[in-house]
């Protein structure tokens, strides 16, 4: 089994190649404005670094967000197109779940918060606890909200993602080393869920409807 994992839900463009029982080979570029340009060459390079080619890929994993839409779609359409062209399955993983795994590895706490940049002065967030098997278990569904709208006790949890960088006064316990999705962790979560038979739909988590009023809504204003 060789899993190719991609995530473009944050400012980081991440690619990982994971072979069974090995350390993942990871490539990351941080650039919020160049997902389209950077992802495909990064896939090519990371595969080469792992001594693999596209034909060796048996599984694809992709972060389904939530995240800024335009960048998110670059990763998702790349994954589903490669999956179709290579005739291999594509597994979707909520990107916040991956950050939660990274957060739990970085702290001894049993509960963590993930808060990422949703722009427009809002964060994408979800709360997690350490499950019986050590994996992150979601306590809340992913949501988008102004950070001031989160209860104080939630904001006090060790927090992963770039939310605390943007709203330092609101998040008391930032996990400064866990800012963006680690595609190697994404690959591991996907492999674990696949082994457990957990369904992994490849559906983008937009959480917001498109910014437009229908003609009926405009008339009603």
């Amino acid at each position: 089994m060789l899993t190719l994992a991609l995530d473009t839900s944050t400012s980081a463009i991440g690619v990982a190649v994971l072979r069974d029982g090995e350390q993942p080979v990871v490539g990351v570029e941080v650039n919020a404005r160049a997902h389209t340009e950077l992802l495909a060459p990064l896939v090519e390079r990371t595969l080469a670094q792992a001594g693999a080619g596209v034909r060796d890929v048996t599984d694809l994993a992709v972060g389904t967000g939530p995240g800024p839409f335009t960048g998110l779609r670059v990763g998702m359409v790349t994954a589903v197109t490669m999956g179709y062209a290579l005739d291999v399955p594509v597994h979707g993983v909520c990107s916040l779940d991956v950050l939660a795994e990274q957060a739990l590895a970085a702290t001894d706490a049993d509960e963590v918060l993930v808060a990422t940049d949703a722009r427009r002065r809002e964060v994408y967030w979800a709360r997690y606890r350490r499950g019986a098997d050590g994996a992150a278990e979601a306590v809340t569904e992913p949501a988008v909200e102004a950070p001031t709208g989160l209860p104080a006790e939630v904001r006090a949890l060790p927090t992963a993602g770039r939310g605390p960088l943007l709203y330092a006064e609101l998040f008391e316990a930032p996990l400064a080393d866990v800012l963006d999705v680690d595609p190697g962790v994404l690959a591991r979560v996907a492999a674990r869920r696949l082994a457990a038979g957990t369904p992994m739909p490849v559906e983008p988590l937009y959480l917001r409807r498109p910014d437009a009023l229908t003609t009926a809504e405009r008339a009603a204003r």
Binding site: H35, T36, L39, A40, V43, E44, V54, T70, R73, V74, V77, T78, A79, T81, M82, A85, L86
Partner: peptide, 14 residues
């Protein structure tokens, strides 16, 4: 961007 990323994925895969 959706089309360009998809086309790159195809070219790379094939």
């Amino acid at each position: 961007m959706v089309g360009v990323a998809s086309a790159k994925a195809l070219a790379l895969s094939l």
